[in-house]
Simulated assay, not measured.
Amino acid sequence: MEKERCGWSHQNEAMTRYHDEVWGVPIREDQQLFAKLMLDINQAGLSWNTILQKWDNFDHAYDHFEIAKVAAYPPEKVASLLQDPGIIRNRRKVAAAVNNAQRVLEIQQEWGSFSDYLWSFVDGKPVINDWASLAEVPATSPLSDQIAKDLKKRGFSFVGSTTIYAFLQAVGIINDHLVTCFRHQELVEETMK
């Protein structure tokens, strides 16, 4: 019998695999968190499917999102990224990657890790929502408003509340799998271990 999934996951095989294996799984490793933040920033104004198709290209172009390496990109590297057809060649988004990597390094100095900083907003435990339909899932929340505001105050760019909400969903800080979706309960059980 076919498993019940969130409706957006049926677009293609890659989206289904992303939904089943990646989306909503709690991430607590800084480099992975930074990578997801950058991918969500690049998704602004585009479909997630577009970013998913370019994921490997992004990973290669941005040196596997090694935070210190991205933070130190010289102008020549930025120029080469703007010529790379395998990624989103938006000057402001490329600049945001370098800037935001520098800001993540500052947070690591202050908090010990980017993960500790982000998870502190929810006392280390995912927010578990109980949506019955995609129409109920919001684009922002008081939590995404709060984190976006704090990130902006710290000098991050391209971190509006909508982008941050999508990021929080993706990295499992918010569990927004529908209650009818098989992943909702699986992730609830995993977080209780």
Rank of each mutant, 00 (worst) to 15 (best):
N42C: 15
I41A: 13
F167Q: 01
V98Q: 10
R91F: 14
S141Y: 10
Y117H: 10
I173G: 01
E66I: 09
Q83K: 15
N175D: 00
E2K: 14
C6L: 04
F182S: 03
W23E: 02
I41E: 06
F114D: 02
T191S: 15
H10Y: 14
I51K: 00
I164H: 01
A35S: 10
H177D: 08
D84A: 14
L134T: 06
D150H: 07
S9L: 03
L151M: 13
A166M: 14
R92A: 15
D145K: 13
I67K: 03
N12S: 10
N100I: 06
D145T: 10
E106G: 08
M38H: 00
S47R: 06
I51W: 00
R92G: 08
K69S: 07
L105H: 02
Q169M: 07
H60K: 15
L143A: 14
G155E: 01
A148N: 05
G7E: 08
Q108T: 00
G7N: 09
L105W: 01
A72H: 14
I27R: 00
A44H: 04
N12Q: 06
P26Y: 02
L39W: 02
Q43I: 03
I51R: 00
R92M: 15
D176G: 01
Y117W: 15
F58W: 12
N42F: 15
F158R: 03
Y18E: 05
H177Q: 05
I164S: 05
A132E: 12
Q109S: 06
K36S: 14
T191W: 08
L46N: 07
K125H: 14
G86C: 12
R91P: 04
N175A: 02
H60Y: 11
K93W: 05
R28S: 07
I174R: 02
Q11I: 11
D30Q: 07
L46M: 10
E189C: 04
R92D: 15
I164M: 11
S144C: 11
A35Q: 10
A135S: 15
V22K: 03
E106C: 12
L39S: 00
A101H: 02
Q31W: 04
S141E: 12
E136L: 11
G155M: 12
P74R: 08
R154Q: 05
E4L: 11
S133R: 12
I107M: 12
E186S: 10
A79K: 10
A71G: 03
F167K: 00
L52R: 03
I128S: 04
D123Y: 10
S133G: 06
S141V: 02
N49E: 07
R183L: 05
L143Y: 08
H10C: 04
L81N: 02
M192P: 03
L81R: 03
E136M: 12
H184Q: 05
E110C: 02
E29M: 07
A95M: 11
Q11A: 12
V159T: 04
A95H: 12
T180Y: 11
